[in-house]
């Protein structure tokens, strides 16, 4: 028996027209995604000052519960949404990758703030990872320093749009051969080993910082420091 492939999609115009008359038409996908996007369970941890904004978003004034993501869980096994809120140091990065690995599918990651995206103001530091997307895939990048609670809600809405666009039949966590457990980097003598996971992230071909600032990296001004003058007579106090 031959089946025709089901390609019927409901026309948005008809849907709206019927909705005005009180008739709601939905596909299974719509219902499924509506359920999923309205009940994201974020993981509860904050890394730096962005966490304060995240806490503000969870509180009554901004109220992340309006978007269904209010249940912050202390365990990665009970959460499916990771808000990386703040600076990821090299010492913290392996722990974050481990937490990501322990989260059940389907899982989503939102990096909050400049530090989590790229290292931010600490990008030239010896201690700060230049973006957690070097080790794990990220769904939403949310710039800001720190982003305001409205921005976090906007990022959450963008993630909900992404969830809406996914289909049950094609969603990756039901496919065979899905690999969403990434190896945990190790502490090395000069930083993390490896410096990034080429499966997840590759350095840009064109060096934007070099174009803009004239050099690829600034490690601070290292000219000779001035000597402090020897004051023999104390200034009057």
């Amino acid at each position: 028996m031959a089946f025709a492939k089901n390609i019927s999609a409901i026309d948005q115009g008809i849907k709206n027209e019927l909705a005005q008359k009180g008739i709601v038409i939905a596909t299974l996908n719509d219902l499924y995604n509506w359920g999923r996007r309205s009940s994201l369970w974020p993981m509860q941890f904050g890394l730096a000052c962005c966490a304060i904004e995240m806490i503000a978003t969870a509180c009554a004034r901004y109220d992340i519960a309006r978007f269904g993501a209010e249940l912050f869980r202390p365990s990665p096994r009970q959460a499916d949404f990771m808000i990386i809120s703040g600076t990821v140091t090299k010492k913290m990065a392996p722990l974050l990758v481990r937490l990501y690995n322990q989260m059940p599918e389907p899982k989503y990651v939102l990096t909050m703030g400049a530090c989590a995206i790229s290292g931010g103001p600490f990008i030239d530091g010896y201690n700060v990872l230049r973006g957690i997307d070097r080790y794990i895939p990220v769904d939403v990048h949310l710039p800001g320093c720190p982003p305001r609670p409205e921005a976090l809600l906007y990022g959450l809405i963008q993630l909900q749009k992404k969830i809406d666009s996914q289909e049950i039949e094609k969603c990756e966590w039901y496919q065979k051969g899905l690999k969403r457990v990434y190896p945990v980097p190790e502490y090395g003598p000069h930083g993390l080993i490896p410096k990034y996971n080429p499966e997840v992230w590759r350095p840009r071909q064109e060096e934007l910082r070099k174009q803009r600032y004239g050099q690829p990296i600034l490690t601070g001004k290292k000219t000779k420091a001035p000597h402090l003058d020897v004051v023999t007579t104390a200034p009057s106090s």
């Binding site: 190790e186 080993i193 499966e199």
Partner: peptide
């Protein structure tokens, strides 16, 4: 300070051990 954009021999070795295509 290390250049965190360029992978070195120990990184390659680590990635090979973990079966990541390079």
């Amino acid at each position: 300070q290390e250049d965190s954009e360029i992978l070195e021999a120990e990184d390659i070795q680590w990635l090979e051990e973990h079966g990541i295509p390079i």
